[in-house]
Design a protein around this nucleic acid. Structure first.
Lengths: 246, 246
DNA sequence: AACATCCTAATGTCAGGACAAACTATTGAC
DNA sequence: GTCAATAGTTTGTCCTGACATTAGGATGTT
């Protein structure tokens, strides 16, 4: 079963070896070199072929299993999952998703204020009484079509934010530029019908379906940096994800 | 910084050591023994205290980082995330979620058929032409209140399914009983407004908001076992998840 | 031919060590 | 006093080695 992965490992690269393996196998699956359902060679032989240790090989496969591309069974082997799997939902911003997708989103800042945080915001961001936050609402369009209406609250002790900045780039880009390393976010996805305020902005009818998302993001120092409440036109947006059994 | 985790490791237990550590730290966080934002001792000392090797300790912390409870920074240390983190979205069924939650869901089977798969279903389940599937719709209530309207298509070569079975337990429970080990699922979450068919069943008004979910589940042999299209009352259900930066 | 038993292959778990890279805080020089 | 070099701490990566556990086929018995 010479599976001829022709992966090449570059030991002088700063990219960790296990990650090079991950990328190599991902590529092999996407190019069809590794067909869905096919079995891989066992971990030990694969490691030997690439002059890697088994733990390193195993760590690479762990990631691929976690992301849903591979399936392992003890005593049997490892095989490529037959279904075409998309990337699991990652911590990314709408703006990044759209630009990565080749679209050119535009952002219109509807309101902008630097105000004292209300109770709900203080609780969401773990702020003391009297702390101030940036509070703003934005309308995001892609291809001239409105897609999302976003209301956010952001700590003001990270980086300066103003209306002009928000109009020119995504919020997460601004915050990353201010030194924030996002680590995780909790979010809740639901639905509502468009009200009189939302409908005209999103160029739809009151009563049409909207996808709602509430999110709070945490950075690597444990600070709750940002919380927001977004609504999306249901006919233009939905959340796609891959769930992996642990 | 004697953090007194008083974890006890049982080496005779069939539970892997690293998982015992995971459970111990999770418990410490949930009981408040480890406060949000507090730093843990370093990996090596913790491992030594529990008479474990560093890789084992590290594997445990890896899982906790992945699930969002801990945050690591090279050169600095590991700390408990300040926000209260919920479990990441796992591959679970609505029925399981409800029963684990202490609720007593009831299921009403609206339609049931054993029919030849249509094109869309054949494609979703990777079935050959002429293959047959179980096709059924169910209404799930909890506390007498309707919550979800579910339409599913299931391969018929796994286990026998009938109307009575579906009324008494969850679909995933039936399939697991039939020897299926679920591994992953891809799903898409969106929104729609209730139509004339859905509204009376869900005891709501036409035009009210519904959360929609489409899911296809894959088992450990790579078979696409089940695909379904569910709608939930938006006022009673939403999807909550934790996203972790990779 | 049907069944139970053994064997093999593969993944799962665990240990102990070594060095690299990144961040902090201290120390030193100007 | 301010800034830069340095040392120390902690996580990140990688290695070798060992044994346990499981699934499934092969073997042998009834």
């Amino acid at each position: 079963m010479a599976n001829q992965l022709h992966l090449s490992i570059d030991r002088s690269s700063p990219v960790p070896l296990y990650h090079q393996v991950v990328q190599g196998i991902e590529a092999a699956i996407h190019t069809g070199l590794l067909e869905p359902g096919s079995r891989l060679e066992n971990e030990i032989d694969l490691a030997a072929q690439l002059n890697l240790s088994r733990p390193t090989m195993r760590k690479a496969m762990d990631e691929l299993v976690r992301s849903g591309l591979l399936v392992r069974k003890r005593g049997v082997g490892t095989q490529v999952v037959s279904s075409q799997v998309r990337r699991p939902l990652e911590l990314s911003s709408l703006y990044d998703d759209l630009t990565n997708n080749g679209s050119k989103p535009t952002t219109e800042v509807l309101t902008f204020a630097h105000v004292e945080a209300d109770d709900a915001t203080r609780q969401a961001l773990h702020l003391p009484a009297g702390a101030k936050v940036y509070h703003f609402t934005r309308l995001r369009k892609v291809g001239g079509k409105p897609l999302a209406l976003m209301e956010n609250w952001v700590r003001d002790d990270i980086t300066h934010i103003d209306e002009e900045l928000l109009g020119s780039q995504g919020l997460y880009g601004i915050l990353r530029g201010g030194g924030v390393n996002f680590r995780l976010a909790t979010q809740r996805i639901g639905a509502m019908v468009a009200n009189e305020y939302q409908a005209p902005l999103l160029e739809t009818e009151p009563g049409s379906a909207l996808v709602t998302m509430e999110r709070t993001a945490v950075d690597d120092t444990g600070r709750n940096v940002e919380t927001g409440h977004h609504v999306y036109r249901a006919d233009s947006y939905s959340f796609e994800m891959t769930l992996v059994q642990r």
